[in-house]
Simulated assay, not measured.
Amino acid sequence: MDRPDAAFRTGGTMTATAPATAWLRGLGSRGGTAGRRLFVFPHAGAGASAYRLAAYLPDSVEVCTVRLPGREGRFAEPALTSLDEAVATLAPLVAGHTDLPYAFFGHSMGALLSFETARRLRALGTPLPERLFLSGMRAPGLPDREPRHALPDAELLATAEFAGVDPELQELLLPILRADLTLCETYLSRAEAPLPCPLTVLAGSDDESVTEAELAGWREHTSAGFETHLFPGAPHLYVRGAEPQLAETITRAFPVQG
């Protein structure tokens, strides 16, 4: 799973008057000039600031990053442990901002969140994403190799995610990472018709958490186009540091014009 993000240091609470802006950071960031919108769903242990894709995408693409409870400006709220609960709140908020052609990008936990959000949008009768970019995660229905959300604190702290993290920060991040692991590892995929959205499945070629066969399993979840793209020599968290290449890949498959 993914390394905790130091962005959790920032405190704050969600305001009841603006739930969409609490969940979707970046709404209106292009000043009304955007012609397309990209919703970004972060990995476990990450806040909305984990990726800096907006800096490498054209000004005509508005990037809205999902900010879950328990991190950054929502640090005072309890973290969610149910993917269904997250999607039930998130999907209607996204549905209110589908006035532009849009796509989803989700890495690891974010891939599951984006996929199930698209399914929920279909149930709501909302216009669907033009494409889903699903990164670093095995296809739904395939089992986790080594579930860890129920490990004792000492064993979870001994995993690679916490290597080099300050002990005080470890104590702060541990319950957030455990909540995110619970959300992922208790997720049960339901049988539904394939989405009519094309899928681009991404991963680092050196990502030991997922195999090419597990990535290929996403093919059965679309009735439209399907493609895979591996970033050479890249580990699981290739997304940090590879934003220029990732933005280029997204732009090719989700063109600004046409």
Rank of each mutant, 00 (worst) to 15 (best):
R3Q: 12
T10I: 14
A16L: 13
A18P: 06
P19L: 01
A22Y: 00
R25Y: 04
G26S: 14
L27W: 08
S29V: 05
S29C: 13
V40N: 02
F41K: 08
G45C: 05
Y51F: 14
Y51W: 04
Y51C: 11
A54Q: 15
L57D: 07
P58N: 05
T65R: 04
R67S: 15
P69I: 05
P69F: 08
G73E: 09
L83P: 10
V87M: 05
T89W: 04
L90V: 11
P92C: 02
A95T: 04
G96T: 02
L100I: 12
G106H: 02
H107M: 11
S108G: 03
G110W: 02
A111Q: 08
L112Q: 08
L113G: 09
L121C: 06
P129L: 05
F133Q: 09
P147H: 03
R148K: 14
A150M: 04
T159D: 13
L169S: 08
L169Y: 06
Q170F: 02
I176S: 09
L183R: 02
T186H: 01
Y187M: 06
Y187G: 09
L188Y: 03
P194V: 03
L195S: 09
C197H: 04
C197L: 06
C197F: 00
L199C: 11
L199P: 09
V201R: 01
S205R: 09
D206Y: 01
G217A: 10
G217P: 05
E220S: 15
H221K: 05
H221P: 08
T222P: 08
A224E: 14
G225C: 12
L230W: 06
L230N: 09
G233A: 12
L246N: 07
L246P: 13
R252N: 10
F254H: 04
P255D: 06
V256S: 00
